[in-house]
Write a protein that binds this DNA or RNA. Structure first.
Lengths: 177, 177
DNA sequence: GGTGAATGCTTCGAGTTCGAAGCACATGAC
DNA sequence: GTCATGTGCTTCGAACTCGAAGCATTCACC
């Protein structure tokens, strides 16, 4: 697929196109495979797995704010509200009011959630080894991380060009008006 | 996020985890940004854009089989059927019966589709430059493509562990039964 | 050339996602 | 204290995706 049709000045070169499609397609395909693996092995969505992993492996207390999880796992608040409801019904997480902000909701992993996570992890890791890491050498993996982490940081730092400001702190509402 | 909890032998090392999350998160975030850009600028989904681009830029005839597009753009036939319907209603593509196979359907881009694609391209390229390529040097871009293309090829070659065989040609139905 | 299996696409129902609107609480100015 | 504005989360409706089932055609083999 070449974008080189009527926009010489704005075109991407072939290498850039290759990188773009390789990134998008490999991530999409990997997610699809991982998703079906998680679904059949542990009855979890990729999103649900990621929520459980964030809560159960990263957080010392096993709990996080809804907003924080939403920003990482899904790209809308309502999306996380929906999943939190699903997972709460399944007994994997609990919702508690935030102690320091009555508007806030804190999501905590339950024992059942930890058990489900533990049951999903080995197959998940196995799938990653098989699909993602088999064609990559150890230095390759490091290089890949070193290339993509700055991209990720850069995108997270760049505001979506026209959207709700939604800066965590230190927002700049209106420069002159 | 460290997976290093109870599965020493199966664990991924930190570098692998970094690469995994950087890949998944950067691609997901990039897709989200690109999607909103395409939506506001040209009223197109990422999937629809990709269909138009494949038909309008890659194919000399401006047309492709449904199955071929489905495998590239979406991960189910029904998903492409839905999008083909949407885009046909919008006048961007046309459906024709395949001449050499009465079951097949060929999707062709229309003049309106080419016009829509042309209107979307500059902003799309601009968004990619801004978000993806700004933090990467030219050699970086080449390295990224060189790392991810083998991963993509490897995944496309690996059957989904338990699914319909669905090989284009040369299937091996039943070894002994 | 006839029969059974495979293939190409569509229809259908269920599940997931998003954005906009809404509600409750918090924060800052006065 | 009060008011206006901002923030955290939920509800709601619309759109999208998938897998399974179904229909029509083709292929392979006898």
């Amino acid at each position: 697929m070449s974008f080189a049709v009527p926009y010489d000045a704005l075109d991407l070169d072939d290498t850039q196109l290759r990188a773009y499609f390789a990134l998008m397609d490999s991530a999409a395909l990997l997610r699809h495979r991982v998703e079906t693996q998680l679904r059949t092995a542990a009855d979890l969505t990729y999103v649900q797995f990621k929520v459980l992993a964030r809560l159960g492996l990263d957080s010392p207390t096993g709990s996080l704010r809804m907003t924080e999880l939403a920003d990482e796992v899904v790209y809308s608040r309502s999306g996380l509200t929906y999943q939190a409801g699903q997972m709460e019904n399944a007994g994997l997480v609990e919702r508690q009011p935030s102690p320091d902000d009555d508007r806030g909701v804190i999501l905590s992993i339950t024992d059942a959630g930890r058990a489900r996570l533990a049951s999903a992890l080995p197959g998940h890791v196995e799938e990653l080894r098989e699909l993602l890491f088999k064609p990559l050498s150890d230095p390759d993996v490091l290089t890949l991380a070193a290339l993509l982490e700055p991209v990720l940081d850069h995108m997270r730092a760049s505001p979506p060009r026209s959207a709700t400001p939604r800066r965590r702190k230190g927002h700049v509402p209106n420069p002159s008006t």
